[in-house]
Amino acid sequence: MEIKNELVVGAPLDKVWAYLLDVPNLAPCLPGAELVGDDGNGTYDGKVVARLGPVKLSFSGQVKIIETDDAAHRMVMHAAGAEDKGKGTADMMMTVVLAPASGGTTMKVEQDLTVSGAAAQFGRGMIADVTGVLMQSFAECLQYNITNQGSGGTTTAVRAARPASGFAIGVRAARMALMRVFARFFLPYDRNR
């Protein structure tokens, strides 16, 4: 499943890029994510807790930065994990490309996600919407942290994203779905919407 999101972070490109490469610093901004290990070679052990509809899933796995291109501001990450109660597995190849934009930085995120088990069975229709919510939350967190650092804050003041609560995700995903339906009915056709 391919999921594409485009976000705008209200911070300069260089700062966002630097922040992105610092995985231990970044992790708290990923909703529900927790970093538990670092082998020092760009591979990290982590946990992600998420609710997809009726199922609560907690994945344990590894994240590895596969490729970074400083000139193009392009980064490729691979994450793979298994659900702790045997409910399924997930495997994601994520490509992030940064570009300058008015008032900050545009962040293009492409995720190629493969899920199996309960997550795939129950969450199929929701995964794209839920991921959209998570990415939005990620961008807000990123902007907050970068802005605070810039104004003299310390790394200890890193703000963590709230864990991915089922209800909040549900409400926001539902809102996105409703807006999409509204757009379908009342707005001109846009294939990227």
Binding site: M1, G117, A120, Q121, R124
Partner: peptide
Amino acid sequence: YDAEGNIVGSNYMD
């Protein structure tokens, strides 16, 4: 089924 062999239609939502 999807390409990974996940069933679509495992519950009354699908």
